[in-house]
Structures are given as structure tokens and as C-alpha cells.
Design a protein around this nucleic acid. Sequence first.
DNA 1: GACGATGTTCTGTCTAACAGACGATCGTTG
DNA 2: CAACGATCGTCTGTTAGACAGAACATCGTC
Lengths: 190, 190
Amino acid sequence: MTTPPRLESDLGWALGTVMRSYLRAIDEVVAGVPGGPRGYQVLAAAGRGEAGSQLALAQHLGVDRTVMTYLLDDLESAGLVERRPDPADRRARRISLTTDGGARLCALERALRGAEEAVLAPLAEDERTVLRELLARIALGSAPVNPCQVAEELQAAELSAPRGRAPRRSAAAPTPPPGTPRAATPASPR
Amino acid sequence: MTTPPRLESDLGWALGTVMRSYLRAIDEVVAGVPGGPRGYQVLAAAGRGEAGSQLALAQHLGVDRTVMTYLLDDLESAGLVERRPDPADRRARRISLTTDGGARLCALERALRGAEEAVLAPLAEDERTVLRELLARIALGSAPVNPCQVAEELQAAELSAPRGRAPRRSAAAPTPPPGTPRAATPASPR
DNA sequence: GACGATGTTCTGTCTAACAGACGATCGTTG
DNA sequence: CAACGATCGTCTGTTAGACAGAACATCGTC
């Protein structure tokens, strides 16, 4: 009995409730952004240069490719992002922020900081930081497993420590535990 | 600059990604439950006796009343829950677990424990506990503000400490900070 | 140059959520 | 006690959103 009597440990309920609270909090802020919350996430990803192809962006955000098309249509017609042909692959489009998009993103981030803090209000200052970090670790660790990212990581690890040193333990767990869920079970009982 | 250079602090993205990861992880487990993940949450709430009326249950889970009707229809026809008339209010129905429902819930919770641990795999043991607790605190703090629950709480606090002792600080913040988001903004721009 | 694979877009279908109304019942007020 | 508004659960209809699949252009490879 090392664990204290759990008062309320339903992870799913807590996650869902916090998620809804978050969406409600940012609702007003992102109301003017074409794609809503996801529109902002596209801007944020583009601003960080994380937006490779549309497909990569879609997987990063957890949306369907076809949805990403419409999302970018709206953002582009609003003048916030640009679809520029990838010089290396003429099939793909690179998503980049316009000047307006950059300014908009900056304003959004400032406003969102406040909304996020309101969501995290029940926590103390340092606890908020801890929560952010733990969530980010899980998200990064269980992000859509990008094979080439993993490959890069392994390569980098090998290069930096060719003596057979194992890659950093805390990073995106390369050896998933036995009970790892299979991806996207198609057998959902509609 | 007391805050360290934030490497990846997009709370919304982290929340969404963890949420999707969680849903994927429990997908197989709750595949047989009528309402899917929310069907389980109904069972869990009923098992804890948290299920007052259908409306309270719906608000607790963040779903519409009409959706709750269908959800309970399915769960009831599967023999997992019972709709019994509330003796105190003949409009309302009390939701209770059947024997089958209790057994099912027990099995589900065991299986879900494993799936949840898989989601939290990137974290160390104590970090998982911390995350669960922080999320639960936020969820409890920003749950659909139930006026009568708040009233009860205040009453209980007064009864247990009539000397003017303030209620516990960590509990569902009765004095929301200035920037508290308004509940259920009806002005959502479709 | 032919082949399969991949990125993006388009089309159609279908589920799930929401707004609104209805009947039954409660609490309250005159 | 009768009438009124409010609330709970249900039902109906509409609509937005997601998904499956095909089509087109292009890449990598043999």
C-alpha cells in the first residue's frame, strides 16, 4: 500500500474535463482565427518551423489529411499562411507564416498565455510548470511515431556515442512496453 | 526571466496529443462497451455513486442531455445500468449499476489501469502520480460549477469550523481569479 | 521509361452533436 | 387549491464535421 487511497484517479475523466475547460477558456481568443483552436495550432507549428509538409502537419496535430486541406484553405484565404511548393519535392507544399500570420500568432500567444493560466489557476506556480513539462514529455513520447525521426534520433545517438552507449532514457521511448496499444484499430463497433 | 526557456510549452497541443494517445490506448478495452469511452465513464460515475440525475451525470461528463439519453438507452439495453425513478423527484431518474454492470466495471478498471500506464510510460513512477493528482485538481476545480455543490461545501466548511475558518485552499477554488472564463459561451461563431 | 509509392485535392457518405419543442412534474405564489 | 414559471427527460429535425475512396501529379527505383 505505497500508493495513498486514490481519491479521484480516473485519468480519462480528468483529461477530458481539463481539455473541455481549456477549450472553453480559449474559445473567445481563437474565435476570430479561421480554423478555431486548430487554426492556431497550425500557426504555432508554422511559426516554430515544425510544419514540414501538410501531411506531417496533419499527423502532428492529429487530424485527417483532407481536413488539413480545408483548414489551410481557410488560413490561406485569410492571409495568415502560405502554401509554397517544396523545392525538393514538387508534390509537397511547405507551409509558412505570412507577415500577418506572424503578427497574429504573436498576439494570439500572448492572449492564450492568460487563458492557459486561468485554466491552471487551481495549481500553484511551480505545479503549473511541472504539469506543462509532464504533459509535454508524454506528448513528445507518444507522438505519432515518425519512423524517420526515430531513425534520425538513433543515428544521432550513434554518431555522438559510437561506443554502444544507449540513447537517452527519457526520450521518446524507443522500446515500447509490452502492452503498447496498436495504432488506429479499425474494428470500432459503430 | 525566472522562467526557463520553454522548449515546448503549447499546453493545448500537449493536452490534445495526450488525449488522443489515451483514447487510442483504451480503444480496444472499451470497444465492447456500448457508449465507448463515455459508456465506461458513465459506469464509473454510477459505481462511485456520483450519478445523481441524468442531467448531473451529463454535466459531469461534459455531454449534452440528449446524448446522455441515447447513451443510457444503450447501456440499459445492454443490462449494465438501471434507470430507476427518483423517489424524491418523479421527473428525475436515478442511474444505478446492475450486478452485471458492476462486474463489467471492475474488469474494465483493471484493464484500463494497464492501458493508462502505457500512456504514462514516458514518465517515472512518481511523476505519473503527480500528473494524475495535478490533472484531478484542475478537473475538480474547473468542473461545471455546480451551485448547490458549492453551497454544500460552504455549509460543510461552516459546520466543521464555525469559528470563521476558511475552507481548504486546495479545494474547488470558490473565489475564481479575475480572468475566469465565462461558462458555456453561447456566441460561438460556427 | 515503366512501375509502385507518396502528397494533395476532391467527392460522397455518414455519424454525432446541437437547437428546439413537448409532456410530465416540481416549487412557489397568490 | 389553482395557476404560473422552471426543470427533467425525451423526441425531432437540421447541420457541421469526420472519414473512406478515387483522382491527379510527382517521386524513387529498377
